[in-house]
Design a binder for these strands. Sequence first.
DNA 1: CAGAATAGGTTCTATTATGCAAGTGACTAT
DNA 2: ATAGTCACTTGCATAATAGAACCTATTCTG
Lengths: 172, 172
Amino acid sequence: MQVTMLASMEHKSLSGMDCSVAQCLEVVGEWWSMLIMRDAFLGVRRFNEFQSRLGISSNILQRRLDRLVETGVLAKVRYSDHPPRNEYRLTNKGFDLWPVLDAMRQWGDRYAAPGGPPLLIVHDGCGSVCETIQVCSSCGVSIDPRGISVVAGPGRSGEDLIPKRPITESGR
Amino acid sequence: MQVTMLASMEHKSLSGMDCSVAQCLEVVGEWWSMLIMRDAFLGVRRFNEFQSRLGISSNILQRRLDRLVETGVLAKVRYSDHPPRNEYRLTNKGFDLWPVLDAMRQWGDRYAAPGGPPLLIVHDGCGSVCETIQVCSSCGVSIDPRGISVVAGPGRSGEDLIPKRPITESGR
DNA sequence: CAGAATAGGTTCTATTATGCAAGTGACTAT
DNA sequence: ATAGTCACTTGCATAATAGAACCTATTCTG
């Protein structure tokens, strides 16, 4: 699998990595990136607003925003020329990170929210507070790792695949 | 929102943080953690196997494994007493991180896999290569951020919520 | 018009984490 | 007896981070 470096630790790229999870981490795996994206989904756009909500130092925020723009998940949009002012908005590529963020939110709600979930999601379509469940795109049935098999795709040799076997401590 | 620190950077905890995404990142937000979990889902169990697949140094691997055990997503299971040998298996809590990993994989496949997806998922139930889609747990319809509203839950005051507005550069 | 405030940064330094290499202890295989 | 494996642990140089101060342009306030 040849991972050499995780998420580009401020620039060492792991280009050759043939794993999509690692590719995703290269974009949003740095220390504050995911929280910046979360705030972007909540409607935050401006430097100062990110900074005050996150409590991050401005130099780090600047580097993260620059990198998120560079990798194409945020776009720097000028909204005033006269004091030169920019805001950061999600691109479509950034918007598509929603399932990742949503999955993290649900996991955190379940395992690390003793006072109940901090945020609730209301599905406008049906009007109810809901969770997100994962279903198979072919048959629409709910899926989890126990009901799937992993095979090598076009982007990899498959030599390093381990034969299917129980993966949890309880032997599932 | 009061984030003070992202993912515990090797131990500074951000205890008071009322955001489930941040809570999740505190467990798997460190540099190699998510890739270790990915390998665990692929069936990797032993120290040496993680090390050789990831190309990570042994001291860092040790610290990551210890932390993943400490936070309860991996379990250290003794499989030999006589040379004392342990392996690391997913707990149920770790197993439930699957949607996060899967979402990252799909995003990476879409935006960072020029040679095609490195791995394909076959749904054993229907036998076809498939993707995962997210649907509303109430009505079963596919959802994305445009069709939902966010409201404060029991775990938060809601004061810092931003009124719903377009979040992408294209004004959606 | 002077002075304070705001937005969006940049620069500096101390602290902290990482990567690499080497070493340890308990065995096992030859 | 010697070499090798597995699961760690330690030390050290390097790199990334946090925190604070500083900077520039512009607007607001008195």
